[in-house]
């Protein structure tokens, strides 16, 4: 395969995401301008200019009309996807670490960090309700006790939000009552990423404890473990095959002080059920920070600490490959 290399960012990529149909690829980085690209040929459609700090996360609604970004400049912003104009800005006390649209696209949530004496919180807004935005009064604001949230997704048909924490635990918050419904701790270190599968019944987590794990989204039952020997920054489930792709590598700050082997930065493919690795793809010059499967499962993208996004279209060998068992 000949990957497309997208060089729109000047700093490390933090998250990449496809829209629902997979024709657009969104990327955000530790620089201030999230980008949107045509996934098919790597042409940049535009940038969302306005943030003043690293952008930690982004999300797109199902119709690809709005983009939500979470940034370290103490704001979360809502953008018009087509024109790149800012629609709204939420000012917070702390950096915003994670954000997401509900499945319906009507509600949004974002999580703030613990900094400067402010406790982290999980805020939910209904973006149809003008008064909530005007008064900066969230539909629900859930204070987070304990370790801060590092990754969060909506789950269960918008009934709850799954959060991954700095300590390695997962929580499930009821969107109506704001209560913590479930709490499990299987990972021993920080959760770096949570990604749901296509039908949103399971999710795969990526953790600093060098493992990625598969969980049931409803019950938070631990199903599978994908073991590596380095921190996992991101993991995604293929919508087409029983495959999981893991991106990771050493922590960025340790790259210059440990092994010189460059191969630590490849994307690794595991079988979803048998938990065994079957393939690797090289290419990045630094740890991979985010991976995403195209919704048709025929290509995937990865964004790395080196600031590049690489769009890979699978060769026929990938589809012909049969896992031996």
């Amino acid at each position: 395969m000949k990957p497309l290399m997208l060089q729109g960012h000047t700093r490390a990529i933090t998250q990449i995401k496809y829209n629902r149909e997979g024709d657009l690829l969104f990327s955000c980085a530790k620089d201030t301008k999230p980008c949107v690209w045509y996934a098919i040929n790597g042409e940049r459609l535009g940038t969302y200019n306005g943030h003043n700090g690293a952008v930690w996360a982004l999300d797109i609604d199902w119709q690809t009309t709005k983009v939500l970004t979470a940034a370290a400049d103490n704001s979360a912003r809502l953008w018009d996807c087509e024109t790149g104009k800012q629609l709204f800005q939420w000012d917070t006390n702390n950096a915003v670490r994670a954000c997401g649209f509900s499945y319906s696209g009507d509600m949004i949530m974002f999580c703030t960090d613990r900094q400067m004496g402010y406790n982290p919180s999980l805020d939910i807004y209904d973006i149809r309700a003008g008064e909530q935005l005007a008064n900066n009064a969230p539909l629900l604001s859930i204070p987070i006790e304990g370790p801060k949230v590092t990754s969060a997704v909506w789950g269960g048909l918008d009934e709850y939000i799954i959060t991954g924490h700095e300590s390695g635990e997962f929580s499930q918050f009821d969107v109506k009552s704001g209560e913590r419904v479930r709490n499990v701790r299987v990972h021993s270190k920080q959760i770096n990423d949570i990604q749901l599968n296509k039908d949103r019944t399971m999710f795969v987590s990526a953790s600093k404890d060098t493992n990625a794990m598969l969980f049931d989204a409803d019950s938070l039952d631990h199903l599978k473990t994908y073991k590596t020997e380095r921190p996992v920054n991101s993991a995604a489930i293929s919508p087409r095959m029983d495959h999981v792709v893991l991106g990771g590598g050493q922590e960025a700050m340790q790259v210059t002080t440990t092994s010189t082997r460059i191969g630590k930065f490849d994307a690794r493919f595991f079988h979803l059920i048998f938990e065994e690795e079957f393939g690797r793809v090289k290419g990045h010059f630094g740890p991979i920070n985010s991976v995403a499967f195209h919704p048709d499962g025929k290509s995937y993208s990865s964004g790395g600490e080196d600031g590049y996004v690489r769009v890979h279209t699978f060769d026929p060998q990938y589809f012909e490959f049969e896992f031996e068992f």
């Binding site: 395969m1 000949k2 990957p3 497309l4 290399m5 997208l6 060089q7 729109g8 690209w37 040929n41 790597g42 042409e43 940049r44 493919f269 690795e277 079957f278 393939g279 690797r280 793809v281 090289k282 290419g283 690489r310 699978f314 060769d315 060998q317 990938y318 490959f321």
Partner: peptide, 18 residues
């Protein structure tokens, strides 16, 4: 069309099956 300053095509790489 793609702007060459932001979009580049990399060398051919292959998935290594292990």
């Amino acid at each position: 069309g793609p702007n060459p300053s932001t979009t580049a095509i990399c060398d051919d790489i292959f998935m290594t099956f292990v």
